[in-house]
Amino acid sequence: MGVKIEMFRMMLYLSFPVTMFWISNQAEYFEEYIVKRKVSHFPCRKELENFKERMRVRREQQILKKMSEN
């Protein structure tokens, strides 16, 4: 009886991670949960890009101002 229980436990230990890996790598799962969640967490991508652009322009102006002072 001991060998059968050990084989069952080993099969369970090996099949669970493999099954979870297989399920999580399905394209439908990825599209449904990961992509939609990313879109819902970062809806204002244009605002972020505009902010980055403003900060870049501001940094360039500061550098130019420092260069003109010297």
Rank of each mutant, 00 (worst) to 15 (best):
S24A: 11
R37N: 07
S24D: 02
K38V: 02
V35Q: 09
P43N: 05
E47N: 12
K52G: 13
E31C: 00
I34T: 01
N25R: 12
R45N: 10
L48Y: 13
E31G: 00
S40Y: 04
I34C: 04
V39L: 14
V39H: 13
Y29C: 00
Q26F: 03
P43G: 07
K52W: 15
E49S: 12
E28C: 04
F30K: 05
E49L: 15
V35N: 08
A27N: 03
E49W: 13
L48H: 11
K36A: 05
Q26C: 01
E31R: 04
E49Y: 14
R54T: 15
E49A: 15
K46W: 06
N25C: 05
V39T: 06
Y29N: 02
V35G: 00
F42K: 09
H41Y: 07
V39Y: 09
N25L: 10
F51Q: 15
K52M: 15
V35P: 00
I34L: 13
V39S: 12
C44V: 09
K46D: 10
K38I: 03
Y33H: 11
P43E: 04
E49H: 06
F42L: 11
C44H: 13
K36F: 05
F42V: 10
F30A: 00
A27Q: 04
E53T: 05
E31L: 02
R54Y: 15
N25G: 08
K52V: 09
F42A: 05
F51I: 14
E49V: 09
A27L: 11
K52F: 14
K36P: 01
V35D: 05
N50I: 10
F30M: 02
F30W: 01
S40G: 00
P43K: 03
L48V: 05
V35H: 05
Q26P: 01
I34S: 01
K36M: 06
I34P: 00
E31F: 01
S24Y: 09
P43M: 12
E49T: 07
C44G: 09
E32D: 01
R45K: 12
K46S: 08
N25I: 04
S24T: 08
A27M: 07
I34W: 06
E28N: 02
E32N: 06
V39A: 14
Y29M: 03
E32F: 02
V35L: 09
H41M: 06
E32S: 03
F42Q: 11
Y33C: 07
V35K: 07
E32G: 01
V35W: 03
R45F: 07
R54W: 14
S40F: 00
P43D: 04
N50Y: 13
N50M: 15
